[in-house]
Simulated assay, not measured.
Amino acid sequence: MNKVTLTLVVSLFAATAMAQTKKAPVKKAVAPPSVSMAPVLKNSLDSASYSFGIMMGNNLKGAGITSLNYSLLNKALTEAFKNEKAVLSTDEAQKAISNFFQESSKKQHAASIAAGKAFFEKNKQVAGVVTTASGLQYQVITPGTGAKPGPTASVKVHYKGTLLDGTQFDSSYDRGEATPLSVNNVIPGWTEGLQLMPTGAKYKFFVPYALAYGERAAGPQIPAYSDLIFEIELISIEAK
């Protein structure tokens, strides 16, 4: 008799006995909450080993990791210290960790990613908004009449940058001075967008996160997976 069958028989027997005796139902005993036993640290090796676990755990939690397969983690640590052959090479392990962080980060920012996608789908229907093959969107505020910069040109611009919700994170206008920069030394959305602008023009760019800072944050004001909006005024193309 297997465990499932035995459990079923016991349950039926108990139910029959209850029906025959017609006794009042007995409240089930509530098991006391399990108490985690504190580790016994007998020496400095024990203390250091436990401390490594604390530090690793806190660092991983700080990076957004909520759980791991702890038995495999312990196995891999043991194999490494014993110089045993690992299932994955160093390159494969690094790739697996990178993929895991990307998946974890995407789950964490899923709502923001979905909101950005919905914004761009709606925004491309707005009159005057142009969508390029890369997904960059722009709107001409003031047309220019001068030359357009090349892919390695040095330029001076005035600009204002905001998140999709309108939160401003940077502005050269507030600083009162145009910013010099190289077209090929900025985020991909700017590199593409600046080359579309005649000198003297002012454009509004809607930059998907993949053409901005991607999966990483950019300081405390720009979270990971942030779609950005820039108003850019091309002041001049600088002589080499």
Rank of each mutant, 00 (worst) to 15 (best):
A93E: 09
Q94C: 12
Q94A: 02
Q94I: 07
K95H: 11
A96M: 11
S98C: 02
F100P: 00
F100V: 03
F101W: 14
Q102F: 10
Q102H: 06
Q102M: 02
S104W: 01
S105W: 00
S105Q: 08
S105F: 02
K106L: 15
K107P: 02
K107E: 15
Q108W: 00
A110C: 15
A110I: 15
A110M: 14
A111M: 14
S112M: 12
I113P: 01
A115S: 12
G116A: 05
K117S: 12
K117M: 04
K117E: 08
F119T: 01
F120R: 00
F120P: 09
E121H: 03
K122A: 15
K122H: 12
A127I: 02
A127Q: 13
G128D: 05
T131L: 10
A133R: 06
S134K: 00
L136F: 00
L136N: 08
Y138G: 13
Y138D: 14
V140T: 09
I141K: 10
P143G: 06
T145W: 01
G146C: 07
A147V: 03
A153I: 11
V155E: 10
V155P: 13
V157W: 14
H158I: 05
Y159I: 07
Y159L: 11
K160I: 06
T162V: 09
L163Q: 14
L163I: 07
L163H: 05
D165K: 15
G166N: 15
F169T: 06
D170V: 09
S171F: 08
S171G: 04
S172F: 04
Y173K: 07
Y173Q: 09
D174K: 15
R175S: 09
R175A: 05
G176D: 03
A178T: 00
A178C: 10
A178L: 04
A178V: 09
A178W: 09
A178R: 07
T179L: 11
P180F: 02
L181R: 15
S182F: 14
V183G: 13
V183P: 01
V183A: 11
N184L: 04
N185C: 10
V186P: 03
I187W: 12
I187P: 03
P188Q: 01
P188G: 00
P188V: 06
E192M: 00
G193A: 03
L194F: 07
L194R: 04
M197N: 02
T199W: 01
G200D: 06
A201P: 12
K202L: 12
K202D: 11
Y203R: 00
K204I: 00
K204W: 02
F206K: 02
V207D: 00
P208K: 01
P208H: 06
P208C: 05
